[in-house]
Amino acid sequence: MLSWFTHHFLAPKSFYKTSWFLLPWLMGAFIIFFVYGLIAGLFIAPADYQQGDGFRIIYVHVPSAFTAMAIYLVMAICALLTLVWRIKIAAICMACSAEIGAWFTLLALVTGSIWGKPMWGTWWIWDARLTSVLILLFLYLGFIALRSVINDISNRDRASSIIALVGAINLPIIHYSVIWWNTLHQGPSLMQFAAPSIAPAMLHPLVSMIIAFLLFYAIILILRMQNEILIREIKTEWVKRVIAL
């Protein structure tokens, strides 16, 4: 059963074919969640009583930070599948996720910085969350840099799997040590981002935007993976037929 699953369903060729059927559904769902999140977040949700309309950047910042973390988790799981079970599609998924994850991380940093200007009066503060996101960006860039210097595909996949795993083991440690460092140096924090409780009218658009961002990742990931599969299997008959079409 398991071997059927990995060899047929997860074979690059069948993934290429089945993923075409998934795409319209993902895109439809993405549009619904994105449009609802955008309209509800920008117009329906009440303005924050302290930050006014400035808080609305939360609908981009939090989803992109969340998606950036989620993508690293996906990469770590794929890394384990690559190293232990040598599942080809997992390596492809890991390879294609990295750049998307790095862009989301950068987006989270930039939006966090823009949000910081009205809140703190400065573009950058060594806030615990922003700092962990910055280190996440370094982890992504290290991963991408390592991949760019290794020529052989299977070596590239396995070497980058190891660094992804090491990063994933370290990420929680880094995260908590940064939070701890922040409280040590800043005293009682003035800059807690998300309030512990949030009004439902503000929360629903946020959840909707998070789902929309994850769906967007899934769509871009599938498109990139299809591309990567064609490149990797360029010599096989089925790819030649696909390209000829």
Partner: peptide
Amino acid sequence: ILIMPLYVPVLIF
């Protein structure tokens, strides 16, 4: 570049 980000916790403590 690969390993310096991993050094953050040690540096902090």
